[in-house]
């Protein structure tokens, strides 16, 4: 084999190996990207009902307040389903772009359960917590908005517990406590401080 042929063969082999490595990296990145995509599939069938007036307590990162805002949405008769639809619509406001208080795509409320009359348990999607921005203030705004919106629209509910994918989680994104029950009185004190 001539020297030129050896060099050409070597170069070709190197090119093959290089292209193979490049393809491998491309494939891995594509798979990682697919895994990180938020799950945006609908989590339950839409519930029909007459349009009702509800009050959203919407969080605004700048200037860091929670403001009441009225809206009209179709709500079923069952209180738990009403709670789910209200929070679903509230979170929908945050998932939209642009939003005054952004939540990640795929963030949603899966279910609301009413227990012992005054307590509601809110079950959220994994993306709600896993993609949430980290920070005491930004997490506090989310929790306050959810709790106040739910308790304001479901008379009798005074305590709220937030779950993520059916399970208790230590914090929302490293700061806000999700192991506790939120009392509407303390949340209202917070909203008063934010005014």
């Amino acid at each position: 084999m001539t020297r030129a042929l050896t060099i050409a063969t070597g170069l070709l082999l190197a090119a093959v190996l290089g292209m193979g490595a490049y393809l491998y990296i491309l494939r891995r990145n594509e798979q990682a990207g697919a895994r990180n995509l938020p799950d945006t599939r609908p989590i339950s069938a839409p519930v029909a009902g007459p349009p009702s007036r509800v009050t959203f307590y919407l969080a605004y990162d700048d200037p860091g307040v929670v403001r009441a805002q009225e809206a009209s949405i179709a709500l079923p008769a069952d209180p738990a389903q009403r709670g789910r639809e209200i929070l679903h619509a509230l979170v929908g406001e945050y998932v939209k772009r642009p939003s005054a208080h952004e939540l990640p795509g795929g963030a949603d409320v899966k279910d609301v359960f009413l227990v012992t009359g005054d307590t509601a348990v809110v079950d959220t999607t994994p993306a709600f917590a896993e993609g949430h921005r980290s920070g005491v203030f930004v997490e506090t705004l989310t929790v306050a908005s959810l709790v106040k919106t739910l308790t304001a629209n479901l008379p009798g509910v005074t305590r709220v517990k937030i779950l993520v994918d059916g399970k208790e989680r230590e914090t929302l994104a490293g700061h806000a406590d999700l192991e506790c029950f939120y009392d509407v009185v303390t949340v209202e004190q917070l909203l008063e401080q934010l005014r």
């Binding site: 506090t140 230590e170 914090t171 806000a176 406590d177 401080q193 934010l194």
Partner: peptide, 18 residues
């Protein structure tokens, strides 16, 4: 100054701030 659900303030038996 605000009150906030900062973990683990509720579990501290002392004057606690974040």
């Amino acid at each position: 100054k605000l009150s906030a659900p900062v973990k683990p303030l509720n579990n501290v038996a002392a004057a606690a701030i974040a």
